[in-house]
Design a binder for these strands. Structure first.
Lengths: 200, 200, 200, 200
DNA sequence: AATGAATGAGATTTCATTCAT
DNA sequence: AATGAATGAAATCTCATTCAT
């Protein structure tokens, strides 16, 4: 059997390096040579696998979004009560471990890049669609199983997702007020208040 | 009599141009020569008033934050019921008019810049402190005058601000789901639900 | 009586400032604005008195040379024995006091400038002609009055002047070996050995 | 087999070009792009091998000093009488051939650069230490073999070196009086007079 | 596949000079 | 006479991209 193409592996290696450089230097200061160094490769080879710096970034953003989604999908696939799953899902958004911090950095850089780039806006749009569906599914399941009560699921989903985004930014910026724990608490409280069965 | 120093005026002119370029090109693509052109000035003069590109951006971010704050302060200084003022305040955050869109662009670029720059993180930290105080004051006034009911003001303030931030991002990215109107509705609903007098 | 033109005074003020900047920053790094600052004037006025930076430097070099010469002429005009005058003259070349150090800085910058500029080479040529005549006159006087003995005055003059130049460079460069005192000693010894009456 | 690193060769190529530009334009007017053109390279590559213009100049000065020293060492290593070697050595300092002229240009630029730069002063200090040792060794050898007579070797060495420096400056500045031949004669006469065996 | 040297366009920054006041 | 703001050409330096090996 032919050895599986090194291409996929090398592309992943380069995108992983790109994510790390996005954390350490940000989109504005990112150089192709930084990525090469972070991947322990030569600058030249980057352009063998990616047509341009722009293409590299687009691919990295797209890849990061799919990886994030897959991670979350595995949580809601579990056979557990909806409220347990929702709180577990919320935890995965708190930038505490290195991987989550990295994901958020990539995401913030995507936002600013997307302000000027329709392709990146497109990635953002698809991503948010998926996330709304994901969280919406858990809430719906909760309503059906009687652990949640909610008259406007879409509204809660959008409020919750935007709250998560805004809180994550402050955590990343090392806000004294919004620590990772406080972010978790604020999200939990929102869910408990808005979706409580005996709220009425 | 000495003519009034042109310095303050010229600095403001350059920072206004910087804000416009931040909207059209973003932080990553912003060139000093773009700013000069936008300000109808020669490239050299930018460095006469700002030591470096970095310094120019820092000053622009700082200035934009103070201007934003002043605009909002004038709203809550008015002699109106707290709920009216709160909803009016929320409206000022919806990126609908050009000035608000510009403010949000500047703010998003500040976030990503701040991820790598302690000075910018500092500006963010001060800004959020002020905004929490501002919104907190309106809610407190509402509680005292009986139009709001709330057991944990700080929690609501933080949830509300983060929700605004997250929603604004999606509006700027031209999300099909989160339009300016929808952003306004989501904020209004949150306030009406969480601070309603007869919520219990 | 009309107040004497401010022009001569202002030109001297600017050239003095130029000399100071030549000491602190050197020819390569000298900026017109540095000179203006050192003279407590605005950058614009420099070009009112000097057509260009080049002209300013040429004038400064020329002026410095004449001032140096005048200072030395006053020494040999004194009514003293030739050997006393020669040793006194040698002392004035040792970069010990601030004015002499400044003169030498100006002179070294003239050398490097002159390597590419015929006008400056011309100043150098005239200056060395004058200095040879000056020192030659003292030695001749010494021979006539019997305190010196020398068969080739021109040779000694040229050896002595070049030695002074080479030693001054090392003193300015803070050589550990060639201190100001050592420079003085080396010059004195040369004169005492080469011009001694009973040398034969 | 790995091709031999191009780095050493390229650096030497660039420093050689730098020396040529120092001759034609001098330190003040030297541009990185001039060096690139003189080396038949693109401007960008200069900064690939040297961090900055300043670093390039420092390296060039350092390299030139070592090359000069090596050239002279090969002379005194020969098996010849000390007086022959000393006169041969003196000849190498007369700016007659292109290479010697270039060396002196570089050296004069080093002096003026060193007036403001401790690193360059350090190079000068080391260089003069070596040169004193070199000439001192030849004179000592001459004394031991009976061709020279001298009671204070250090004094003669310092007088001779400074005389060489001062004379070379005037030759470079195309003095009518100090031609290359006259420089050689003045040095020879000094040595013959001061080190003559039957001087006493 | 991979390297890393090389290119060259373009960015920031500097600064002599000009000019309105 | 003098200021200092403004210009604009040119300098240093950066870096995406190419290419010979």
């Amino acid at each position: 059997m032919a050895r599986p193409s090194v291409e996929a592996e090398r592309r992943e290696q380069i995108m992983a390096a790109t994510r790390r450089v996005l954390v350490t230097r940000g989109l504005t200061l990112l150089r192709v040579s930084d990525v090469a160094k972070a991947a322990s490769l030569s600058p030249g080879i980057i352009h063998y696998y990616f047509d341009s710096k722009e293409e590299l970034l687009r691919a990295t953003f797209d890849d990061a979004f799919h990886a994030s989604l897959d991670r979350r999908k595995s949580i809601i696939a579990k056979d557990e009560p909806a409220d347990v799953k929702l709180h577990a899902l919320l935890r995965t958004y708190v930038p505490q471990d290195e991987r989550t911090v990295e994901s958020w950095h990539v995401w913030l850089q995507l936002w600013t890049g997307a302000l000027q780039d329709p392709d990146l806006r497109n990635i953002n749009e698809r991503a948010y669609g998926e996330w709304r569906a994901l969280i919406g599914a858990v809430i719906t399941q909760g309503i059906e199983t009687g652990v949640f009560e909610c008259s406007d699921t879409a509204l809660v989903v959008n409020q919750l997702i935007s709250m998560i985004d805004g809180l994550a930014v402050q955590v990343l910026l090392e806000s004294g007020e919004i620590t990772p724990d406080e972010m978790a608490r604020l999200c939990d409280e929102y869910v408990d208040t808005l979706l409580a069965v005996d709220a009425g």
